[in-house]
Design a protein around this nucleic acid. Structure first.
Length: 203
DNA sequence: AAGTGGATTGGCT
DNA sequence: GCCAATCCACTTG
């Protein structure tokens, strides 16, 4: 299986387009334990100063959001409760935008992912959520700021998504009107989409 | 120096 | 469906 990192130019496109372009792509993480990769099946766009749900709302520039103000195609990892969440930075230098990866479908390193995650009730529970996939792939805050065009953490070409659906983002109820923006994208029918019962249950 | 609040998950009622 | 777990960035005093 070929897993060549994408070129830097892959990330140079509007964030709503990048969020959809990432569907079907592979997220690859190499650690001392080995390599693991998942095919991205669900994403959410967070678009800079105007998006109340974004950490960079109002151009809020802090040590945490700093990477979003840099060039696109870097890892923005932050801790939410007990879990790490992984984003791809987007938007040109100075534009603090990002795409959250919410779910992947395991492609490589299945045993490693199982060992990291422990027992799960159903196969798709392994990577069907933003906190789950980082644990399965081995992504941590140490990856903050890494360019996604070379090991140990990178995006590679995968099997393109066949049908893309969109809808409101998850978990941002306190964000006013922004909660209704249809900036969540997923591959229709894919069981690894977050929500517990796979995409099929909501379509 | 202390308080607040999540872009979540998993277990229990 | 509800809620605790448990971390830390950020705000306020």
């Amino acid at each position: 299986m070929r897993m060549e990192p994408v070129r830097d130019g892959f990330f140079d496109r509007p964030t709503l387009e990048l969020a959809q372009a990432l569907l079907g792509m592979l997220l690859v993480c190499v650690t001392e334990e080995g390599a693991a990769a998942g095919r991205i099946v669900e994403t959410e766009a967070y678009i800079g100063p105007e998006d109340r749900a974004a950490h960079s709302y109002g151009n809020r520039r802090t040590p945490r959001t700093e990477v979003m103000f840099g060039p696109p195609g870097r890892a923005y990892v932050y801790v939410m409760h007990t879990h790490s969440l992984f984003n791809v930075t987007s938007g040109k230098e100075g534009k603090p935008e990002a795409v959250l990866v919410r779910a992947v479908e395991p492609v490589l390193g299945l045993e490693l992912m199982r060992a990291r995650r422990g027992p799960v009730k159903r196969p798709y529970d392994l990577t069907n959520g933003p906190g789950k996939l980082t644990k399965a792939l081995g992504i941590t805050k140490a990856d903050y700021g890494r360019p996604l065009t070379a090991p140990p953490l990178f995006i590679a070409q995968g099997r393109p998504a066949e049908a893309v659906a969109c809808g409101p983002r998850i978990g941002i109820e306190g964000s006013g009107e922004a909660r209704f923006y249809p900036w969540r994208f997923w591959e229709a029918g894919n069981p690894y989409v977050s929500g517990g019962r796979g995409a099929a249950a909501r379509e």
